[in-house]
């Protein structure tokens, strides 16, 4: 077993080896994942950070290319990926990366995402507490689940046990002298929120047209908060920003709740808020299952915590499969 202080004090030496470290820090009363210089600022006094790891693997806005028309020059955007340690994110966020990996590093590889992922070691600190919005267990994960982590620290009697999960994690641990532990961890905290997914996929398979879609989407205001804070939502737009002859092409997060998302010159296939909300639910709980065999939800609960109108995905899933 190791004391947290012991691990934190090693982080400086990881930075000295050329790794950038992303960890939870307190900013304006929020605990956010951010690149840190000073390891003493790391704050593990959180249930879950507000932002997710997609901020770092699939940034909100990135330059795909730069162009200069006068010079007839087009060049890829600067590759700013660095060897990276993610320290102190939670198991649900690591699990979300495993879902993004299946989607973005598949038959076609998203080169910028794959480059960042390849250089990143995810060192998860498992949860010793949960809150009322957490429902990771219902999605097949859990407060100590190692999915997507390279190394996981499990809470044990006030300290932490190091478990090496992936080959990348073993390599990193051996590089920096982080020894694994085999003692028993504290029991996982209990989750109060549960939602059964029994029958959900079958219901979604056969109820694209159902009056319930109108009802369950009534409170949604299409603000996109759930998208921005979701660790698995990955839809994006590609757009140019340019002066007269020079400019950039950007990849920017985009959200299926926005009516512009699918609007074409010729027609709009998703007319109405309910059709867009249905897309969100179908994408996460049916289409991704059909395509990669996984639900695109890890039960982190951010969409429940931060929705300004109290839209609750677990209540919606229950309402969809319930009779009547």
């Amino acid at each position: 077993m190791k004391q947290l202080q012991e691990i934190l004090s090693a982080i400086g030496s990881w930075q000295a080896k050329g790794y950038q470290v992303i960890a939870p820090v307190r900013r304006d009363n929020l605990i956010l994942l951010a690149r840190i210089e000073d390891p003493s600022l790391i704050n593990l006094d959180h249930i879950l950070t507000v932002n997710t790891l997609k901020d770092f693997m699939l940034p909100r806005c990135e330059t795909i290319l730069r162009f200069d028309l006068e010079k007839a020059c087009v060049e890829p955007g600067i590759d700013d990926s660095l060897p990276t340690i993610i320290f102190g994110s939670r198991p649900c966020d690591a699990a979300a990366l495993s879902i993004l990996d299946s989607i973005l590093i598949g038959d076609v590889v998203d080169s910028r995402y794959a480059k960042r992922r390849g250089q990143t070691v995810v060192l998860t600190v498992a949860c010793s507490r949960v809150d009322g919005a957490c429902f990771c267990k219902s999605m097949g994960y859990g407060p100590h689940d190692p999915t997507g982590s390279d190394i996981i620290l499990l809470p044990s009697q006030g300290g932490y046990l190091v478990r090496l999960i992936s080959e990348k994690g073993r390599q990193f641990a051996s590089d920096v002298g982080l020894e694994p532990d085999d003692a028993e961890a504290d029991p996982e905290p209990e989750l109060s929120r549960r939602v059964s997914t029994d029958g959900l996929k079958a219901w979604l398979d056969s109820n694209f047209e159902d009056p319930k879609w109108q009802v369950i989407s009534e409170n949604c205001v299409s603000c996109g908060t759930c998208y921005y804070l979701c660790p698995t939502c990955h839809c994006f737009d590609i757009a140019d920003e340019a002066g007269i002859s020079r400019g950039v092409r950007l990849r920017i997060w985009d959200c299926c709740s926005f009516s512009s998302f699918t609007k074409m010159a010729s027609h709009q296939p998703r007319v109405g808020k309910y059709a867009r909300y249905r897309q969100r639910v179908m994408h996460k709980f049916k289409y991704t299952v059909d395509n990669i065999g996984k639900v695109a939800c890890v039960g982190d609960g951010r969409c429940i915590r931060y929705c300004p109108y109290g839209v609750d995905i677990t209540e919606i899933l229950k309402a969809l499969v319930s009779g009547g």
Partner: peptide, 19 residues
């Protein structure tokens, strides 16, 4: 068929009809 597309490779998320 035609739908709005941005990426061309099935990841930007907007051209799907069902799955």
């Amino acid at each position: 068929l035609e739908m709005k597309m941005k990426c061309g490779v099935g990841t930007c998320g907007r051209c799907n009809i069902g799955n």
